[in-house]
Every structure is written in structure tokens, then in C-alpha cells.
Write a protein that binds this DNA or RNA. Structure first.
Lengths: 379, 379
DNA sequence: CTCACTTAGTTCACCCAATAAACTAACGTG
DNA sequence: CACGTTAGTTTATTGGGTGAACTAAGTGAG
């Protein structure tokens, strides 16, 4: 109803259906037919007809009666939490998760698998098949969150997964029979953090600092569209010069990762997703010099990208979000070079909130239905 | 017809009118009613009705008969070159131009004024009034190309023009009675260069290097939308560190402009818009060390922005476009640090082509009618 | 030259989705 | 319990698109 072939005449209807559904999503069970008519400027008759179609397609259900505002009590509306599902496939080096998210943002199911590099493709195929068998008819769309560059359809390159120009979306669509969107993991994390933090920033720069370093730009909660993209691959940009540049695992010297990645700042004991207490221990024992060196390197990047993009918000996520206000202040100090000091003000650490897979689910929801969850959903 | 209040039902009609007009613009006099029907998937009846409305509104005129393709010869269509006009106001420190551009991209009129800082506002008011009196009824929209930051409606800050948070668009709309869009001069130059170079790049980074340094990002030929923006103000980002950092006019050390602006590389005799022969002389006499220093500084910026944005094209405009392939190669060398060397390949000098005001006109055209000129128009 | 075929473009009856207005339904209040 | 208010549905009308029949004007085979 909201996706599929566009046969010209119905495009307007679709746009109105999307508007109605978005209002119902935003109001979290408080929207009514009359409210939709008021908010959209459409007539009450049209609003009723739109809602009827949404209910017929099991996207929306009637709720309780609202309190009277002087006349007949309105029937409230909410998205149907029990029918349609979004599938998010989270792929990591050695394991993967399948998360099913309902239209109201609640988790409906989650299962994981582990694999060796050799067994990975088969293990993923099995997982997808199991999910498809159990939830297939209820699926609305799917997204795949993965470490690596993608244009949404093809895995352009993923060192961790050993893929290059791999047409994953096409393969999964054949198995799942719904549209599949591939999403870089840092992009997904950036979108999820914006939801978790209830941020209304328009232009936004997100930096993930963990084993590696990646960046994501979002505008109005979405990724910049465009051709096949390796946007945000800034880990091996040189930011330290001269004698201070140290060797990086990539073979070059002075890379951002060689100075500011979690292992570079906290030592080789750092592991992605490690125990919080163990992490706190690493932070406590960290060499102040290495932390300062990392902050300077990061500050140089933030300074330039901040001036270039003028984001409303610059968010540091991943392990570096747990390094405390001292660290952030050192990064900010590096950005105070420019006459105008607004870059420093917009820098903050990520809110540890909902999982990155919610970001991937959001992107799938946007691409499938043209609507989005707002922050309050996940409060 | 294509702008104004949206009364719901007619939104579809507008979208179709835009599609038809865009096809007519693209085909440069070769489009026909039947062709529009084929390209859009609309019926011939609808295509005829759309064209009739475009002709009635004097946006399009019937042309010659095309050659037969086996049946009745088609009537060709082209945009009306003689009625509607776009006004571009080009504001500089000490003078301004008013350029009137017809729908076919041809220049219809141009007049300039000069002013002192004290007389500037009055001089601009006069110029606008003269233009409005002479061309008012034929105006479709206007844009203002200016040195400084703007969100499209307000001049956020322009040091050269002495404005801060100046609601210029509103003022001009009162005088001109058409929508007015404010455009940063580097953004306009970036859009114009893409047209002149017939570039089909999607994501694009443009760097203007002259008295100062500014950058513009375009996606699909348009500026990134969003809130009030100072996007691209990278002149005073620090890119040189330690002993090599030299003092900048902004009071800091190691700024990009202190190393890579035209005066920094070519000496204080450089003047924006100077005589080409004199410029060539400056280049010939330039200190190789200063040029190399500038190339390194520029390369560091290009390296990071290239990795971050993964643009299809990185274009060096302004005076630096005239420094030759040697200079570009030095810049490229700095970007070869990253394992993947695609940044270097996408770097090129700007094509000296049409004036930046065509870029501003294009942005006005997009915002007013939702259609755009393609490269061939200006071949 | 003529007739069949092709392509361009218009006319007209019909359909879909939105509107406007009249209607029913349900609630609070004087 | 009548009355004003708000929610929501029903129904005639309108705007813009479709499909089919139509006219117009060309090509090419015989």
C-alpha cells in the first residue's frame, strides 16, 4: 500500500497515508481521526478514509476512547504492535543477531548465531531461513547492519566479513521477499543514538571510536543519499605529522587510528564490547600521555569537520564515550583554534541507550513506509 | 502555477507539470508532447494537457515540426526564452551586479553599480528598484550571491559586506514581489562549475581558493538542506602544526589560509579578479617553497574531507585552479597516505566556464520551479 | 496515385481521491 | 432535557488522470 509500483494517480493517496501514519506514530496512541484532519488540513472524511485503509492493512488499530473535549469522545489510534515486523540482521566478525522489531518499536524476537569465517555464509543463510519461515508473512522490510562500506544494496567492502562487492541485498530479498537495505554499523549507531538522545539536531556528525574509527553524517535523521558510498572512512587519514607520528597497523604513520582508536589510547587489552568493569579498569590505568595524544588527533579531525559541515551536534560514540568529560574537554581545546568557537559547544559524548539495531530498523522503516519513529517511542 | 499555496488536490498536477517542464528543458527544443507521454508514463492526453498549461503560463512555446519517425511529424517544444526571467544579484565588497537570465539560460540584461561601505545599502536598493521597475512583471524568482554565511533567508554573517543576521531575503521580497534565495558565493561557484563541466557527479566537494578559502558540498547538484548553516568555512582551520605554522591574519597560527590562500602562495600582490597576464606573472615568479607549503596544507584538508565525504569529484576553483598540474599533483601526493587512493583520482582543477551567477540562477530556478538546467544548455 | 500502416495529438466518457455539506453519534452543561 | 460542541460517516460534486475513439499528417509498398 505504501510501497510497490507507483501507478501515477495513487501517488497523492500514498503521501497522505504516510502523513496519517506518521502522525499516529508520533502521537503514541493519542492521535484521532479528527486530529489527523486538523493536522493535515485534509477533511474529516478523507482522514477517516485514510485511517480505514491503514487499519485494513493492519498497520494501525483503534484504541480507547479519549476524554471528551466538549463533545463526542474521540477514538484514539495507534500503530498495530502485533502484526507487521521489521527484521534487522546484525552481522559481526564472528557472530550475528536477527532482531525483529514491531511497528511500535518493541522487540518481538531475537536470536543469535556464532560462526567461523568458513561457515559464515551458510550460518547466515540458515538464520535468515529460520526467521523467514517463522515470521515471513508478517515482515514489512529488513535491514542489515554490518561493519564495512555499502551503498545500501551491495557490500562494497568489508574486511571483517571478507566481502568485496557482494550483492547481499539482492540475495536476502530473494529469501525474504521484502525490501532489504544494507546499513553501515556506524551509520546505524548514529541514527540510534539520535533517537535515544531525543536530539532534534538537523545536521549531525557522529564519530564511533572503538577498535577502529568511523564517522557518520546524518541530515534530518537520515543518511545522505547518493551513489555507492564509503562515506565516513576516516580511520586512516593522517592527522599527526613529523616526529610525533607513530606507526599504524595499516602500515602508514600518523593515522587517526594510530593515535585515537581505543587500543591506541587504552592499550592492546581493549576489546570491543568488553565488560564495563574491565573497561573502567583500563581507563583508570590508561597512560595520560596516550590519552592526550589521542585527544589532540581527534580534535584536529573534529575541528576541520566541524568547520566544514557546521553540524548542530558532534557526538563521540563507542569506547571513547566512556572516557569522561576530561577527555572531551581536551578534544574541545583542539577545536578552539578557529575564531568562532561553536564547534566545541556542539561536542558531546553519546548517550548509552538503545542498541544500534534500532537505528538500522529506523532506516528500514523510513525506506519501506516513509515514516519514522521519534525519540519518545523509546523513552 | 508551480509555486504558491498547495491546496492538496493539485499537488500531483504540479509534480507532473514539473516533470514535463524538466523534460522540455533537458531536450533543448527536441521534446514533443508524445515524447513527454512516453518518458513519464502518463497518457498522451495528460501530456497534452500539461503542455497546454505550461504554454498558457508562458513557460513553454511550440517550436518547429520534427522530422517524421514514420507518421505525423511532432511539434517540438522549448522553454519560452522571451518571457520569464530570473534575477541574480551578485554582491561584492565594493560593487554589485544585477544579471537577468532567461529560462533558456541566456543572459537578458546586466547592469552594475559600485559603492562605498556607507552608500552600499542605498545603492543596492536603487539597483533593485530599477530592475524591478523594468522587469518586475516578468520575474519568476531571484537569488542573491554574496560573500558570507547564509541560511538562504538571512545573511548570518558577512565580514566583507558588514552584515550580521541581516534579513535580506525578506527585504528584497517586499521590493521584488517574487521569492528570493540567498546563496553563498562559493556555493554558487560550485553549482556553476558543475554545469560548465557537464559533470554528472552526485556527491561533490568544491574548494574556492582566492583571497580566502571556502568550500561547498553539493549532492545531486544541490546544496545540502538544513537549518541556518555556515557550511564550508574552513579558511581558519589549523592544518599546520609545530614550527612550520605561520601567523595568519586572523591572529592564530597554522590556518589553512595562512598557507594555501592565493596571497599566501603567490604573494601580497595577488588581487581577486586580477588581469590574467599579471596573474600568470605572479605564478611564474612564485616561491616554490611557498607553493609546496600551500599544497601540503591543502592536501591535508582534501585528504580528510575526501575520506569523510567520499565525493565523486573534488574540484579546486578560484586562483588555485590556475596553478597548473604540478600544483595539483603535489596536493594529490598528500592524499596518497590512505591505503585507498581514490581521493587523488577525483581531484581536478575547475573548468573556467560560465560565471558563478549562473549557479545562483540555477538554485533560484530549482527553488522556484523545481526544475534545473543541465550542462548542455551552456555548451 | 492509392491504400495500409505509423505516429502525433485531441476529444470524451469514466474513475479515483479529495472536498463540502448534510448527516448521525456521543458527550457536557445550563 | 434541550442545546452547543466535538467525532465521525454518508453523499453529491469536483479535479485530474486514464482509456478508447477520434482526427491529422506523415511513410512506404504496390
Amino acid at each position: 500500500m505504501l510501497h510497490g509500483d507507483v501507478d501515477g494517480q495513487t501517488a497523492m493517496r500514498r503521501a497522505n497515508l504516510r502523513r496519517a501514519l506518521q502522525l499516529i506514530l508520533d502521537a503514541e496512541g493519542e492521535e484521532t481521526r479528527a486530529g489527523i484532519a486538523r493536522a493535515t488540513g485534509l477533511t474529516a472524511a478523507t482522514a477517516s478514509s485514510l485511517v480505514a485503509e491503514l487499519i485494513e492493512n493492519r498497520l494501525v488499530v483503534d484504541g480507547a476512547r479519549a476524554a471528551s473535549t466538549g463533545g463526542k469522545r474521540a477514538t484514539t489510534l495507534d500503530v498495530d504492535p502485533a502484526h507487521h515486523l521489521l527484521l534487522v540482521l546484525v552481522l559481526r566478525r564472528a557472530d550475528a543477531d536477527a532482531a525483529l522489531v514491531a511497528l511500535d518499536g518493541t522487540a518481538a524476537h531475537r536470536e543469535g548465531i556464532a560462526y567461523t569465517p568458513a561457515g559464515r555464509d551458510a550460518a547466515i543463510r540458515d538464520l535468515v531461513e529460520r526467521v523467514s519461515e517463522r515470521f515471513g508473512p508478517r515482515l514489512l522490510a529488513a535491514s542489515v547492519q554490518l561493519p564495512g562500506a555499502t551503498d545500501g544494496r551491495i557490500v562494497l567492502e568489508s574486511v571483517l566479513l571478507g566481502w568485496k562487492d557482494h550483492p547481499l541485498a539482492e540475495q536476502l530479498e530473494a529469501a525474504l521477499q521484502v525490501p532489504v537495505l544494507l546499513v553501515n554499523d556506524v551509520d546505524a549507531e548514529a541514527v540510534a543514538e539520535q533517537i535515544a538522545h531525543r536530539s532534534d539536531a538537523i545536521r549531525r556528525l557522529f564519530l564511533h571510536i572503538g577498535d577502529g574509527i568511523g564517522a557518520a553524517i546524518t541530515v534530518d535523521g537520515e543518511l545522505t543519499p547518493g551513489a555507492p558510498a564509503r562515506v565516513g572512512e576516516i580511520g586512516h587519514v593522517q592527522v599527526v605529522f613529523g616526529d610525533e607520528a607513530v606507526a599504524c597497523r595499516c602500515g602508514q604513520r600518523g593515522c587517526l587510528e594510530s593515535a585515537a582508536s581505543a587500543p591506541a589510547m587504552l592499550g592492546e587489552d581493549f576489546r570491543e564490547g568488553m565488560d564495563p568493569d574491565a573497561f573502567a579498569g583500563l581507563v583508570a590505568r590508561a597512560d595520560p600521555g596516550r590519552l592526550a595524544h589521542g585527544a589532540v588527533a581527534l580534535g584536529r579531525v573534529v575541528q576541520l569537520l566541524g568547520a566544514m559541515l557546521d553540524p548542530d551536534e558532534i557526538v563521540i560514540g563507542g569506547a571513547a564515550a566512556g572516557l569522561g568529560e576530561d577527555f572531551l574537554e581536551r578534544v574541545r581545546a583542539e577545536t578552539r583554534h578557529a575564531p568562532r568557537g561553536t564547534v566545541a559547544a556542539s561536542l558531546r559524548a553519546a548517550t548509552p541507550g538503545i542498541g544500534a539495531h534500532v537505528g538500522a530498523a529506523q532506516l528500514a522503516l523510513i525506506s519501506a513506509l516513509g515514516v519514522r519513529w521519534n525519540a519518545e517511542r523509546f523513552a
